[in-house]
Simulated assay, not measured.
Amino acid sequence: MSRIQTGGIPDTSGLKGRQRRRGFSDALSFEISDQQRSPSQVYIDVFGHLPLIVQKLMALRNRLVAPLGFAISASKIELSVEDLQHGQGVGLHKVEMMTDGEIICTTQDKHMQVSLSVVKHAPGQFTLSTLVNTYSWIGYLYLLVIIPFHKLIALGSVRSMLNRVKASR
């Protein structure tokens, strides 16, 4: 299995320098055997095929936070690379930026802004970053509660993606 390294947002990412005082960021770097994969394809590989437990946790999260005004995702949707277009919404997030080297997808509500980035460093080498900036004390409290779960979910989702990509070759 490929090794996953934790770290900060890459210097080459459009997310670099955007974290505010009551924000959070982390990143997972990994290598994929498919040297031709684009950041958009990796984004779909991760978020278009979330493990069942993650899907269930997201559904529970949506039910709990919707009354508080947080953005929620619709029920399970199929994601494809063809659906990713600048300025268009894909699931919970909207494509903010898409180049050959990076894709950034963002969602924003009255409590927080969440951005996800996939940066391609070299053929087959990627970093998936998460950046959260909060706007309210409710958003900040939510962030503090969710961080440990986020780390487990992110790591599990990337591992699942790496296993699927490896198995499909």
Rank of each mutant, 00 (worst) to 15 (best):
Q85F: 01
V119C: 14
Q55P: 00
H121R: 03
F30R: 09
P39A: 12
D83T: 06
L92M: 14
G23P: 12
V90E: 04
P39L: 09
D83Y: 01
S80K: 11
I32G: 00
D11H: 11
L57A: 15
Q85V: 14
V90T: 14
V90L: 01
F24W: 15
S33Q: 15
T6K: 13
G14E: 14
Y43I: 05
K110I: 12
D109L: 09
D109A: 08
N62H: 05
P123C: 08
V65S: 02
K94L: 02
G89Y: 06
S13I: 06
D11E: 14
H93F: 15
V65W: 04
L52C: 00
I103E: 07
L57M: 14
A74I: 01
I9R: 01
V118N: 08
L116G: 05
P67T: 06
H49C: 02
T107L: 12
V81R: 13
V118W: 05
Q108R: 14
H93E: 03
P10I: 09
S115W: 05
Q36M: 08
L79D: 05
M58T: 09
T107K: 09
G101H: 13
Q36N: 15
T107C: 13
E96F: 09
M112V: 11
K120F: 00
S25D: 14
I104G: 03
P67D: 10
T107H: 10
A66E: 10
Q88K: 15
R22Q: 08
N62D: 15
P10L: 08
A74M: 01
Q19V: 12
I104F: 03
I103R: 07
A71G: 07
I9D: 00
G91K: 09
F24A: 05
I104P: 04
Q41W: 05
Q113K: 13
S25Y: 04
S73N: 12
R63S: 06
E102G: 02
Q5L: 13
Q41Y: 01
M97Q: 15
R63I: 07
V119W: 05
T107R: 04
V42Q: 10
R18W: 02
Q88A: 14
S73T: 09
M112E: 07
G17I: 10
Q108T: 15
R18H: 13
T99G: 06
S73E: 12
S29W: 03
Y43V: 02
G101C: 07
G91Y: 11
F30N: 08
A66K: 15
Y43A: 13
Q35D: 09
G17V: 03
R18P: 00
G17Y: 07
V54K: 02
L15M: 14
D83C: 03
G7H: 06
M58N: 08
Q41L: 02
M97C: 01
P39F: 07
S13K: 03
Q5A: 13
M58V: 12
S38G: 08
T12C: 13
I44L: 10
K16H: 09
N62I: 04
Q85Y: 01
T106K: 11
L15C: 12
V119P: 01
V114S: 08
Q55N: 12
T107N: 11
R61Q: 10
V118H: 07
G69E: 08
L92Y: 05
S75E: 13
A122H: 12
E82P: 00
S13M: 07
L68H: 03
N62C: 04
V119Y: 09
E102V: 00
S75H: 11
H86M: 11
